[in-house]
Design a protein around this nucleic acid. Sequence first.
DNA 1: CCCTGATTCGC
DNA 2: GCGAATCAGG
Length: 227
Amino acid sequence: MSWTDERIEQLRGMWEKGLTASQIADELGGVSRNAVIGKAHRLGLKSRPSPVKATDKPAKPAKAPAAPKPAAPAPAPRAAAPAAPRPAPAPKAEPKAAAPAPTAESESEAAPKPDAPRIVSIGPGGFIRQGPGDQQAPIPPAPPRRLVPAKPSPEIADKTSLLDLNDRICRWPMGHPGEPDFHFCGEPVNPGFPYCVEHCGRAYQAQLPRGTRRPPPPPPFGGPRVR
DNA sequence: CCCTGATTCGC
DNA sequence: GCGAATCAGG
């Protein structure tokens, strides 16, 4: 298989969703776990808790620098003034935390102030209207709002295929990529968003702190397949 | 052992 | 650019 734009997009989404490389590989199909990780790195997205931490190994800086097996007879040329060919990662591997922009949020937000006006525009679907970039505001008390299982209009007779996607129709995936009936929502988008009103409500749910369980995980792709 | 992600390096 | 092989921690 090859990395089509579509598959890359899926990889991105799932990787950021926290699925493991194995799960992603299984989901995408046709690729190995390593392939997924390799691709993820090449795409620039990485980090995420890795079991292996930055360890300083003065004794064993890293694996054997080069070809210890196919025989490296005489590396003569550089013996004179190597100038440290592999200058160990000098700037100690800084964890960098990669905090996803916790940009100022103090405001009057966190304050338990029930009467706070908190003027936000509400999308027709009831979701808090906010730019995709500034999704924040946990608002813990899980919305009692019932999320109906994505109900596409009855006229999906002509399913929206990847080729039918444009800026004005909802790109929410219906079903799993690769399956015969996989298609996209196709409803008119909520202006300013890539999804229709209904799916904006799904896509832009406030990200609760990890560990906070929310019964029905909003499923783009439905999560790991159960096979 | 299993899992995880990271890295290297031949292709 | 790709991914198997390898490494290394849990």
